[in-house]
């Protein structure tokens, strides 16, 4: 553990669309590796007999019936938008970006 390279940090920053300066990358490389070191301690525990889980509450099959209910009025939906044009929310154009899309 604790083996994130500078390139790994830059890659993760790119995925999060964060523009980071060199000194920020250096600082984060140290901080992220420190976090991973803590996980390395947990990883020493014997967990072979314990199935992985993403849940902390023992519920399953909680389903909603397919019934539509009223949505928000447009002005409420866009109430927090910093910028709007007509009834659209406006964001800066992201050129060459990648909608993961499906």
């Amino acid at each position: 553990m604790g083996t994130l390279s500078r390139a790994d940090v830059a890659h993760v920053a790119h995925l999060a669309r964060l523009g980071l300066r060199e000194e920020e990358l250096a600082r984060l490389e140290g901080e992220l590796n420190h976090i991973l070191d803590q996980y390395a301690i947990l990883a020493r525990l014997a967990t072979d007999a314990i199935p992985p889980t993403a849940q902390t509450i023992a519920l399953e099959n909680i389903l909603r019936e397919d019934v539509a209910r009223p949505s928000l009025p447009v002005d409420v939906a866009l109430g927090n938008a910093p910028d709007r044009q007509g009834d659209h929310l406006v964001v800066p154009a992201i050129l060459g970006g990648d909608g993961g899309g499906g």
Partner: peptide, 17 residues
């Protein structure tokens, strides 16, 4: 997303959720 130009000429994306 609709890629468009804002009234001030900036290139923007219009979002419909």
């Amino acid at each position: 997303l609709i890629h468009a130009a804002a009234p001030d000429g900036r290139r923007v994306s219009l979002v419909d959720f």
